[in-house]
Design a protein around this nucleic acid. Structure first.
Lengths: 152, 152
DNA sequence: ACTAAAGAGGACTAAACTGGTACTAAATAA
DNA sequence: TTATTTAGTACCAGTTTAGTCCTCTTTAGT
């Protein structure tokens, strides 16, 4: 399954904080205070996000960070990718060569399907939605088919 | 998003190997050779899975490991939970107290929805499906709504 | 010009995870 | 009974990740 670091998780929180006031530059310290993380950590995350062009930064007094695009045009997936790199799975299930003994590795194919669903889910949720109570926000459907736990 | 360790990933591969011959006891070394991981690592994983009651173990010559239930009644989610503990996200988005300044934390609520989808996906995929080519295996639907990247 | 506020960049420490080794205990087979 | 096979336990080293800190540069205000 998809591997997400703590930093990427924090990243979504930081970005959502920026998304609440998309026009104003917010300092790292300010964001940190709002979301309850250390200024150092938030600062590091924002630096990364600035490098990835999701936020723009302004130096000096009154400086800070601001979203580059509208909150409705930034997905949670984009934030995660910016911090962790391409969304993908852990080695064995993704890397082709590993289970080579098995011939046709059915596991990998199935995992890739699971991953696609997860990736899609993350791509369909925007920062704008993250700022809103769930009511109008995300609506999901589930996968279908098998029901383990039910009698086989 | 969900945090899955390498070990949990390996766990699904190990379990799928057992699922291919559900009645026979397979030794850790044998499974390791099949899937191309070190015997030590596979052994450690199987020990954990045995402790979680997903597999039964038999000591001594001709011993090994075997699934406790039918492959169709064991989900990928169960394997992951057995190794990594409850499926959930990293701290900030899951732990209630952290973003307390924000008042009603809309982020957490939205993340929990995303998580639910992921968890469901993993619960609906069985080891039996993992042993099969995808054709008849898992069929997914995606979430709906927002399309970031499209004009807001 | 000077000072304070802020980001940029990197070095560093601490904690967690990964992967392995060595040894012990149990069960079978000769 | 003895040797062999196999799981069980405990521990250790390397790597990665998390988190902090320090120094430098930029900007605003006085």
């Amino acid at each position: 399954m998809i591997r997400m670091s703590k930093m990427a998780d924090y990243g979504t929180v930081v970005m959502t904080s920026l998304a609440r006031e998309p026009d104003r530059f917010q300092s790292a310290a300010e964001v940190a205070a709002r979301i309850g993380l250390s200024a150092a950590t938030v600062s590091k995350i924002l630096k990364t996000l600035a490098g990835r062009d999701l936020v723009e930064s302004l130096r000096g007094a009154r400086g800070g960070f601001r979203l580059r695009r509208s909150p409705s045009r930034i997905s949670v997936a984009q934030v995660i990718v910016a911090i962790d790199g391409p969304i993908g799975m852990t080695e064995c299930s993704t890397t082709p060569g590993l289970c080579s003994q098995e011939g046709d590795c059915t596991i990998r194919a199935n995992w890739q399907r699971i991953n696609r669903v997860i990736r899609q889910a993350l791509e369909e949720v925007t920062l704008e939605q993250m700022t809103q109570p769930i009511a109008q926000a995300v609506v999901f459907r589930s996968m279908n088919r098998a029901r383990p736990g039910a009698p086989a």
